[in-house]
């Protein structure tokens, strides 16, 4: 059951990820990215990380993608005109990606500790929302405050950047 869900959502995620890179219309790319993030959230749920999955849907598939679509609409981006392909960049990019993938597969296959089965969780455990909240406020209080300051400065920065005249 879990295996079927994993293969279904992982292949969906890879498929939509590929269509983000390969499609030409920016709106279709953004929609594929939404579907990719939703499948990724489902993968998080198969890993018993319900809270992270819900946050992924709310923040990424919701807020961030609305921002992307809004900018695509604002800049009125049309389908990209196909230009002459930069041969060197294409060859280099493909080589780097292929080398990365082959090294990754070799490293993962070489380590037998990585092919262990899913360990069972003990029954009667508190929900992960409760545990994450406990960990966050118990041991990560200062980083939590710093992230609040970061969000505030990002908001101020965005307002300054998008003013009509930069002085």
């Amino acid at each position: 059951m879990l295996l079927t869900a994993f293969w279904f959502f992982a292949s969906l995620m890879i498929l939509f990820g590929l269509s983000v890179v390969l499609l030409r219309n920016p709106v279709s790319c953004a929609m594929s990215l939404v579907m990719c993030f939703i499948s990724l959230a489902a993968l998080f749920v198969t890993l018993d990380a319900t809270f992270i999955g819900i946050i992924q849907v709310l923040v990424y598939a919701g807020a961030v993608m609305v921002l992307f679509l809004f900018i695509i609409m604002l800049l009125d981006l049309r389908t990209e005109k196909s230009r002459r392909l930069n041969f060197g960049a294409t060859l280099g990019g493909t080589l780097v990606v292929a080398a990365f993938l082959s090294i990754l597969v070799q490293v993962i296959n070489a380590d037998p500790a990585l092919s262990k089965a899913l360990p069972a969780l003990p029954p009667g455990m508190p929900t992960d929302v409760k545990m994450i909240g406990f960990t966050l406020f118990h041991s990560f209080g200062l980083p939590f405050e710093v992230v609040g300051v970061l969000l505030l400065s990002a908001t101020v920065g965005v307002i300054v950047l998008s003013r009509k005249s930069l002085r």
Binding site: F6, I14, G17, L40, F100, L104, S115, K116, A117
Partner: peptide, 16 residues
């Protein structure tokens, strides 16, 4: 699914 399955899926997404 094993840990290696998830790592390969994640690596594929990163490569894309």
């Amino acid at each position: 699914p094993t840990l290696a399955n998830y790592l390969i899926a994640s690596g594929l997404l990163f490569a894309i």
